[in-house]
């Protein structure tokens, strides 16, 4: 990532701590991180590591007990800019059924822009545009309960994109999906990367990390590691202690690397590994 000016929009956490009411420990502790425009950041951690809390802190649904969360220099705790923050940060939750409000697809996508008071004709343009991005063109009048899991999740993402946010926060977007659904959502994330949308996605699937520019691992509310995906996948002890498992393919890759096999920088797909083997 090239150098960015100080006044470029970005998401920042400065020493953020948050404790749920009645909880014995803070969910998030003195957390500091930064998401730059157009960057994809993966937040990993076992269940209970604080990663979902992080997602809700980004757009101000939860406010830090101490520290500061800011989006494009707007403090999330500032009530006067609350709705600006929320329109710039689209949040997509784990269970798509918990987010779909409309009785048909296009009505649900329109929900966000309608709340922002966008004009009818412009809403139409946005709906068609985001449905094309998520690959649901033609589904405008479909009722949501007739969609597959992957389609529902892409609909939820479309609903967030329709507000034209600078950032997208995805909380375990593939958790409820089968492999076909997962692939379609991960492919969508790749397409969004090309669009310049900054994405923060939370997951416990280590394999998803290959779609990110940077990754951080949370353990009991603190940052245990931060770096590129390939650096992360090499850190087996840190991962194990944080309750994460290195996927089998990456274990093959690291065993081959450790033996001295010249492999391009990873993480690699099956084809790339075999390609390197045959040369």
């Amino acid at each position: 990532m090239g150098g960015r000016g100080f006044d470029e929009p970005m998401i920042r956490f400065d020493e953020v701590t948050y404790t749920y009411a009645g909880a014995p420990r803070p969910a998030v502790r003195e957390l500091t991180l930064q998401l730059n425009p157009g960057e994809i950041l993966a937040v990993l951690g076992a269940n209970g590591s604080g990663k979902s809390t992080l997602a809700c802190l980004v757009n101000g649904l939860l406010l830090p007990a101490s520290g500061r969360v800011s989006v494009a220099d707007m403090d999330t705790a500032d009530e006067s800019t609350m709705w600006d923050v929320r329109s710039q940060v689209g949040l997509v939750l784990q269970d798509p059924d918990d987010q779909i409000v409309g009785t048909v697809v296009e009505e649900d996508v329109a929900f966000g822009p309608e709340n922002l008071g966008v004009e009818s004709a412009e809403i139409r343009v946005r709906v068609d545009e985001v449905l094309a991005i998520v690959g649901l063109t033609g589904f405008e009048r479909r009722e949501p309960h007739l969609l597959s899991g992957g389609q529902k999740q892409r609909l939820a993402i479309a609903g967030a994109l329709a507000m034209h946010p600078d950032y997208l926060v995805l909380d375990e977007p593939t958790a409820m999906l089968d492999s076909a659904g997962r692939e379609s959502v991960l492919a969508l994330i790749e397409r969004l990367r090309a669009q310049g949308v900054g994405i923060l996605f939370v997951t416990h699937h280590l394999a998803d990390v290959i779609h990110a520019d940077r990754a951080i691992v949370l353990d009991e509310g603190r940052v245990a590691f931060t770096g590129t995906p390939i650096e992360l996948l090499g850190q087996e002890e840190v991962l194990a202690s944080c309750g994460l498992e290195v996927p089998p393919l990456q274990r093959v890759e690291s065993t081959l690397r450790a033996a001295g096999l010249p492999l391009p920088t990873g993480p690699l797909a099956v084809e790339s590994i075999v390609e390197a083997l045959c040369n």
Binding site: G90, D98, V101, G117
Partner: peptide, 26 residues
């Protein structure tokens, strides 16, 4: 539980009540 999550989702999409809302299909 779903109602709680839905409320979070709706607030995140800037729902703040009926005032000032436009419509896709009039």
């Amino acid at each position: 539980r779903r109602a709680d999550e839905l409320a979070i989702a709706m607030e995140s999409r800037c729902y703040r009540g009926g005032l000032g809302r436009t419509r896709l299909n009039q």
